[in-house]
């Protein structure tokens, strides 16, 4: 069995206490929520924090509040989210994304906050210590070269969170709290296109909540490419949301790509092509072509990069068709192996 390295574990019961602990442990501490990402990484010695600050005893992180939109505590599990009627009814993309993360067991443990802060992934990096030693490690951890692109000066590990693209399409913002205070930023500003420094979050900050705007008139959908119907991380995803007038005209739209870069990519030019038009086949094709432009998959996940690139257009098309109201159940059964309705 792969074993965890030794570490100290603390279990604060308030955000305030957790923030103090983070600040006082001089950079050696990490937060752990469900642990479904961090603990496997620790077993592989990708991260070796001296202290883990557990978040599961903090009740305030599990609050969910209705008001102007929806505020979701970062400590809610993905299974909690999937069970939340309001999410299912009003924020379809988020519901579909959360429902497709990993497996039922992992969704019971994994949290929304952990999902948004998920480490970037790469076939050369998500390997145990001995394997990485056999390739003399890589730039992201313990080594100097990026084996995906040896001439690259930057790590190209893949943003693999399912909920982030969906939340970006829904226009989410987040609250970060540290011992010095709190700040609210657009979720988009949390991410950086750098496989190593993929978050702008400061090491002493805790993501406490996700805020979603009012959703009246909006529809959203999330399509995830992976080899199997469960278990697998996305290797491409397309999230789309649109505010559609009664006559079918798109008033506002967002299209976001996941897992084709080190951060989720919002493709505003593609979305703007939709505004003022109905979601006709032609309009969808135009937007899907434009949306596929910035897709830059690398050879570090499942499937070949050429095919993943080619699928970008197709998955954006699926998402937009679903927004239009097409019956996609059969397509869902074939592609997602579940209906997700």
């Amino acid at each position: 069995m792969m074993r965890l390295p030794n570490f100290r574990f603390v279990a604060p019961t308030s955000v305030h206490e957790a923030a103090e602990l983070l600040t006082s442990s001089s950079g050696d501490a990490m937060l752990v929520a469900g642990g479904t990402d961090l603990l496997p990484n620790m077993k592989r010695r990708q991260q070796t924090p001296g202290t883990l600050v557990g978040l599961r005893h903090i009740a305030e992180l599990r609050a969910i509040s209705n008001g102007d939109g929806l505020t979701i505590g970062a400590g809610l599990t993905l299974a909690d989210l999937v069970r939340t009627q309001k999410v299912r009814e009003s924020y379809g993309a988020l519901w579909q994304a959360a429902a497709q993360v990993a497996t039922p067991q992992l969704r019971n443990m994994g949290t929304l906050g952990g999902n948004l802060c998920l480490d970037t992934r790469c076939n050369y990096y998500d390997q145990n210590y001995e394997w990485r030693k056999a390739i003399d490690f890589c730039m992201k951890k313990d080594g100097g070269t990026c084996w995906v692109a040896p001439s690259s000066t930057k790590c190209l590990a893949v943003s693999s969170t399912d909920t982030a693209p969906a939340l970006l399409a829904l226009g989410a913002s987040i609250t970060l709290v540290s011992a010095n205070g709190s700040r609210r930023i657009a979720l988009s500003d949390l991410y950086r296109n750098d496989g190593i420094h993929y978050l702008t979050r400061q090491p002493n900050e805790i993501l406490t909540a996700v805020h979603l705007p009012e959703s009246t008139g909006w529809r959203s959908a999330y399509w995830k490419l992976r080899r199997r119907g469960a278990f697998d991380f996305p290797v491409l995803s397309a999230a789309a949301a649109a505010k559609i007038a009664g006559d079918g005209t798109v008033e506002s739209a967002r299209i976001v790509l996941g897992a084709v870069s080190s951060r989720p990519i919002e493709v505003a030019p593609a979305a703007s092509l939709l505004v003022g038009h109905a979601l006709t086949d032609e309009a969808i094709a135009r937007a899907a072509d434009a949306a596929a432009q910035p897709s830059r998959p690398m050879d570090n996940t499942d499937f070949t990069l050429v095919w993943r690139k080619r699928m970008t257009r197709v998955f954006v098309t699926y998402a937009l068709r679903e927004l239009r109201g097409d019956d996609v159940r059969d397509l869902r059964r074939r592609v997602s192996r579940q209906e997700l309705l």
Binding site: R228, D232, D302
Partner: peptide
Amino acid sequence: KFPSMLEYKSPTTLD
């Protein structure tokens, strides 16, 4: 290439 049950792809019950 991927000596793990996550990346060595074998069907799940849904497949």
